[in-house]
Simulated scan of single mutants.
Amino acid sequence: MTASIEQRLQALEDKLEIIDLEATYARSFDERDGERWSSLFTENGVYQSRPVGDAPSATFVQGRLALSRFCTEAVFSGIHFLHLPQLVFDGDRATGRIHLEFHGDYARDAGAPRLAMHGFYDVAYRRVDGRWLIAHRVTSAFSREQSTVLGYPTGSVLPAV
């Protein structure tokens, strides 16, 4: 059965809306705009890290108020590099996987840890009042590198000759 032009157009609009949602997700988190970032989730939306083994998730945040605070008060800052999502739609629900890189640091002081993380998000989306939102997002890291940047010290430690 062939989809009508209206169905095909709606499918394209849905994909483009979620791609824009993901771009806004990355930018608003990187800019520490907790209000905007949390507005991309459903009212009871969840952001969590994937558990490792039997341990509980290191991060589990639910609800827009908690999500806003999590973004605004995060102890790290950095930049997200997201790949295009792989999406599967089922009416007003969709799922996606988005591969990513995140580069950040925990402070701007010399000696502060810097982080490079590679992984993916698994995301459940819901269309609410005609708008696609994130219902549940799980971060899975497949590599995490941490380094310490000491900065370039000025002057010499040797006595003057």
Rank of each mutant, 00 (worst) to 15 (best):
Y152P: 00
R97D: 14
A66P: 00
I79Y: 08
W37D: 05
F29M: 05
H99E: 14
D92K: 02
A58G: 12
A23L: 08
I79N: 07
F70T: 04
M1W: 04
S140N: 14
A26V: 10
G119Y: 14
L82P: 10
L84W: 06
E101N: 11
Q7N: 04
F89R: 04
A11L: 03
N44M: 09
A26D: 11
T154V: 04
F76L: 01
G34P: 09
E43I: 00
A141V: 15
G111P: 13
E13S: 05
L9D: 13
A124P: 11
A74R: 09
S140D: 14
P153R: 14
E73Y: 00
F29D: 01
H83T: 12
S38T: 11
G119T: 14
V123K: 01
R114G: 13
F120M: 10
Q86W: 08
C71D: 01
G111N: 12
W132H: 09
T2D: 11
V123C: 03
R50L: 08
D90H: 09
R131S: 10
L150H: 14
Q62R: 06
L100K: 12
D122Q: 12
T59K: 02
T139D: 01
F120G: 00
G34R: 10
L158K: 09
E31K: 05
W132M: 03
F81K: 07
H80T: 06
M1T: 09
S77H: 06
L16M: 10
L40W: 08
G119S: 08
T72A: 08
A112I: 03
I19M: 07
E35W: 06
G91N: 15
G78P: 01
P159F: 03
L115Y: 09
E22I: 05
F120C: 05
F89L: 02
S57Q: 07
V61M: 01
R131Y: 11
T139P: 00
S28Y: 08
F29C: 01
Q146W: 12
F142N: 13
I5C: 01
T148P: 01
E31Q: 11
R36P: 06
G130P: 04
K15F: 00
T154P: 05
A11D: 12
F102Q: 07
S140K: 13
L65F: 00
R64C: 02
M117A: 15
P85T: 08
E35M: 00
L40I: 13
R126T: 15
W37C: 07
D30C: 02
D90G: 05
R126E: 15
R8C: 06
R97S: 10
E13H: 09
Q146A: 04
G111V: 10
N44K: 12
Q10I: 08
H103R: 12
G78Q: 03
L67T: 10
F60Y: 08
V123P: 09
C71M: 00
L9S: 05
R127T: 13
